[in-house]
Deep mutational scan, measured.
Amino acid sequence: LRLEVKLGQGCFGEVWMGTWNGTTRVAIKTLKPGTMSPEAFLQEAQVMKKLRHEKLVQLYAVVSEEPIYIVTEYMSKGSLLDFLKGETGKYLRLPQLVDMAAQIASGMAYVERMNYVHRDLRAANILVGENLVCKVADFGLARLIEDNEYTARQGAKFPIKWTAPEAALYGRFTIKSDVWSFGILLTELTTKGRVPYPGMVNREVLDQVERGYRMPCPPECPESLHDLMCQCWRKEPEERPTFEYLQAFL
């Protein structure tokens, strides 16, 4: 395994491009020591290896001592969030954005069929390849993070704006909380990567959403798509659509 080009840095580690087995181009995620327990990670990795779908980033291998390494397929255009905010983002029109959403829903419909939960679905965790191919990455890892700023769910590192209220408040993460996050991801797509709930801080978002506030229809977004977002944001988790439905609708 060779680490060649550093692609990015996040709160919990770095991402590199490299070569595996001398020939395969891969992405390598390294986790800061202390982010998660190697034992817990190894268990999760076994499950992650079983998830194989064309719209999920394929896991190739893991190094399960500290520092933990995760070796996955390489996606040339990086994260969907950076892609939307970058040069190419300007030229993306609604049909392409909807197609990308459908690809993500397709990957998540598979996660749904496998009775698995992602827990951290957002544009930053979707990767883009050639020809606007989108794949879901980092599934299941969020559960293992041991950082206090994260586990408190009120901490600075927790993605509260993407998280369903029952998950943020009571830790009830299910495929239905993933559906909520998918609704937020749809706003990221239609606004080219704007942060959700602009002008609001995490605490406010939690309070307002509890009181029934939902983001309005983004500019140039059809009402039918906003309606779909609002279905994803129904207060009762069981009233939210399935990913199978979302995939078919898109």
Rank of each mutant, 00 (worst) to 15 (best):
Met75Ser: 05
Gly140Ala: 00
Thr174Arg: 14
Gln43Cys: 07
Val201Pro: 05
Ala152Arg: 03
Arg25Cys: 11
Leu94Ala: 08
Pro216Asn: 09
Glu112Val: 15
Trp16Tyr: 15
Pro196Phe: 01
Leu80His: 02
Arg143Trp: 01
Leu84Trp: 07
Lys77Trp: 12
Val63Lys: 06
Pro196Thr: 04
Gly13Val: 00
Leu189Ile: 12
Asp138Leu: 00
Lys135Arg: 14
Thr35Cys: 06
Pro33Ala: 11
Trp180Leu: 01
Pro38Ile: 08
Phe243His: 12
Leu81Asn: 13
Ile184Val: 12
Pro33Lys: 12
Leu31Phe: 01
Met108Asp: 00
Leu185Cys: 08
Lys50Leu: 11
Arg214His: 13
Trp233Asn: 10
Ala164Gly: 13
Pro165Ser: 11
Lys176Pro: 12
Lys50Ile: 13
Arg93Leu: 07
Ala101Thr: 06
Thr72Ile: 15
Gly107Glu: 02
Tyr110Gln: 07
Leu246Phe: 09
Lys157Arg: 09
Ala105Thr: 10
Gly8Gln: 00
Arg214Pro: 02
Glu4Leu: 15
Cys221Gly: 05
Gly22Cys: 10
Trp233Lys: 02
Gly212His: 06
Ala164Thr: 03
Pro218Arg: 05
Ile28Asp: 00
Val128Trp: 05
Trp162His: 04
Tyr150Ser: 02
Gly171Asn: 05
Lys29His: 02
Lys32Gln: 06
Gly10Phe: 01
Gly10Ile: 00
Trp16Pro: 00
Met17Pro: 03
Val209Asn: 06
Pro241Lys: 08
Asn115Ser: 14
Asn21Met: 11
Arg234His: 13
Lys32Met: 07
Lys77Asp: 08
Glu65Asn: 09
Gly22Trp: 14
Pro237Trp: 14
Lys50Glu: 14
Ser181Met: 14
Ala102Leu: 09
Leu185Glu: 02
Lys55Pro: 05
Asp82Met: 06
Ala164Tyr: 02
Thr88Gln: 10
Glu130Ile: 13
Phe83Ala: 10
Gly140Thr: 00
Val209Glu: 03
Ser79Phe: 02
Arg122His: 02
Glu236Val: 12
Pro219Tyr: 14
Lys49Glu: 05
Glu130Val: 12
Pro241Ala: 05
Glu130Cys: 14
Thr19Tyr: 10
Glu66Lys: 15
Val117Ile: 15
Met108Arg: 01
Pro198Ser: 07
Ser177Arg: 01
Gly8Lys: 02
Gly10Val: 02
Asn21Val: 13
Trp162Asp: 01
Val5Cys: 15
Ala101Phe: 03
Ile28Ser: 13
Leu84Cys: 13
Gly13Ser: 03
Glu112Ser: 15
Ile160His: 01
Trp180Lys: 02
Val201Gln: 10
Gln231Tyr: 12
Cys230Gly: 10
Glu239Pro: 14
Glu220Asp: 09
Met17Trp: 13
Met48Cys: 04
Arg234Glu: 09
Ala101Asn: 04
Asn148Met: 06
Arg122Tyr: 02
Lys176Ile: 05
Val15Asp: 01
Cys217Pro: 12
Pro33Cys: 07
Glu130Met: 12
Arg234Gln: 09
Gly199Tyr: 14
Val98Ser: 11
Leu186Arg: 01
Asp178Val: 02
Glu146Ser: 07
Gly107Gln: 03
Val47Lys: 00
Ile28Thr: 13
Leu169Ala: 09
Ala27Ser: 05
Arg214Asn: 10
Met75Tyr: 06
Ala109Cys: 13
Ser76Thr: 09
Val62Asp: 06
Phe139Asn: 00
Lys85Asp: 10
Ala45Asn: 02
Gln9Lys: 05
Ser79Gln: 06
